[in-house]
Nucleic acid binder design. Structure first.
Lengths: 132, 132
DNA sequence: CAGAATCCAGACTGATACTG
DNA sequence: CAGTATCAGTCTGGATTCTG
């Protein structure tokens, strides 16, 4: 369906197989379920570990720790330790993290807006399969 | 979008644990590495199975098939079989898929734009860890 | 409180081979 | 061409236990 004429009208894009490759890894991290939910929370302001743990439904301490580490490693989240007893650790988005939150929130809103469309599409598909 | 009753009381609508919960599953699919790359390709126009297989670097026939099935199940991609010999199957985005492609492309562009920021953040982080 | 460490079942993936 | 089937290795993620 994509004829040879597409090539000349390629003004709007540039393939960049290189870039796409790198994008894959990053999208994997960014599109990760927990990463999105964490970014979504931190977009409202910094939070403590336990606050995040309570705010994000269903996440285990393990996954919260691991995901925060990855986000920190990618420079999206900043970790601030306040040496007290009991210890206090706050997490906040870095400027890079804030810039990410925009497209991520857009995606999250899309997901929420079309949740039912997808659920019903799944339902229809599954029912159609059963009939075979 | 929202019921009229919700608008008055809920204008500042936070949280929505229900919506967020559902969003997680969908984001997982949508944020999937292969899904993104496939949507990205199909955004330019419909393609045949083998064309996708060649266009997307590193994907196996197996993962291409599985991912396309999931996208089809979610109502994002339409599969059209033309019974010939050899067989021909075309894939295209549905209207829902097209609406998804916008936020996905935005995210992909973010990823490409900040690829190096992330790479260097990772590098710094890893080097800081070694010193310990 | 904020993790680190360990265990482990199950999901995910790639490679390979086969089919209509 | 467009898949399906199978198998083995990897990775994931929850549960649990322990520490400064």
């Amino acid at each position: 369906m994509l004829p040879a004429t597409a090539r000349q009208t390629d003004f709007h894009n540039d393939h960049l197989p290189e870039s796409c490759k790198g994008a894959g890894d990053i999208l994997a991290r960014v599109g990760d379920k927990w990463s999105v939910l964490i970014v979504r929370q931190l977009d409202r302001g910094s939070m403590r570990f336990s606050e995040l743990n309570r705010a994000i439904d269903g996440i285990s301490k393990r996954m919260l720790t691991l995901t925060l580490r990855n986000l920190e490693r990618d420079g999206l989240v900043e970790r601030t330790v306040t040496p007290l007893n009991p210890p206090r650790v706050d997490y906040a988005l870095t400027p890079l993290g804030v810039s990410l939150s925009k497209p991520v929130m857009a995606l999250a809103e899309w997901a929420i807006a079309h949740k039912f469309d997808i659920q019903s599409a799944r339902h229809d598909y599954d029912r159609a399969q059963e009939d075979n």
